[in-house]
């Protein structure tokens, strides 16, 4: 069932967001595609108290070689994928100096002392390798519901994932298959919208 192994492939990814936003469904799709590619995978998740609207992250590690640690070292991540702009910045210590930040620019305002959004976005832009996008607007434009915003974000991260675009979309189709063709298609449209946006600004 596995296709040809991607030799020398290694991607350490931090998925970030706020509890309840749905970062794990992004991880599920990447995981599905990675396993189909015959890659090793480890994915550390956050369960429990933080899920109640606190900051949450997941360490997703993919490699063509066996993976030891469940956690990514500081300075080890190739990519931060975040559903919230300030949450993307929370983990920059874990990012390689030339690593990518792919994040939604829409703030999740559930704390009284959220910093000035302009400043948050400026700090993201200060990182050379970034894709900043409004996942909600892009989802809407693609004719997808707001719940598919995380698939827009996933689409925007595809160019940095080291897994082919077509392999990723096949993963999306498999993950959503049991929900019916209509749901598969709206999610695929969301992925394409994010992907095209990332390609256009990269």
């Amino acid at each position: 069932m596995t296709s040809q192994i991607l030799k020398g492939m290694k991607k350490d990814i931090i998925l970030a967001g706020v509890g309840g936003q749905g970062i794990l469904s992004i991880a599920t799709v990447i995981g599905e595609a990675a396993l189909q590619e015959g890659l090793y995978l480890k994915q550390a998740e956050v369960h429990g108290m933080s899920q109640r609207g606190g900051d949450v992250q997941s360490n997703l590690r993919l490699s063509s070689e066996p993976i030891m640690s469940d956690l990514i070292a500081k300075g080890g991540a190739d990519l931060i994928i975040s559903l919230e702009p300030m949450e993307a910045l929370r983990y920059v210590e874990y990012l390689k100096p030339d690593g990518w930040i792919v994040t939604s620019c829409v703030p999740f305002l559930n704390i009284p002392n959220y910093p000035e959004l302009e400043e948050v976005l400026a700090r993201i832009k200060a990182h050379k390798n970034h894709v900043l996008l409004d996942v909600e607007v892009l989802a809407k434009e693609a004719g997808a519901p707001a719940q598919a915003a995380n698939m827009v974000l996933l689409g925007a991260a595809i160019p940095m994932l080291g897994i082919d675009h077509d392999k990723m979309t096949a993963g999306v189709a498999r993950v959503f298959a049991r929900k019916g063709e209509a749901i598969v298609n709206t999610n695929l449209a969301a992925v394409e919208a994010g992907y095209n946006y990332a390609i256009s600004v990269r």
Binding site: G75, M86, L95, K96, G99, N110, N113
Partner: peptide, 26 residues
């Protein structure tokens, strides 16, 4: 890493703009 006598990997500095987001009742 530190206990093994290895230096930390090169990375980015912490972002001062980030504030805590404690969990809260729904």
């Amino acid at each position: 890493r530190a206990a093994l006598g290895l230096k930390a990997l090169p990375t980015n500095e912490k972002e001062a703009v980030v504030v805590g987001r404690p969990p809260a009742l729904c």
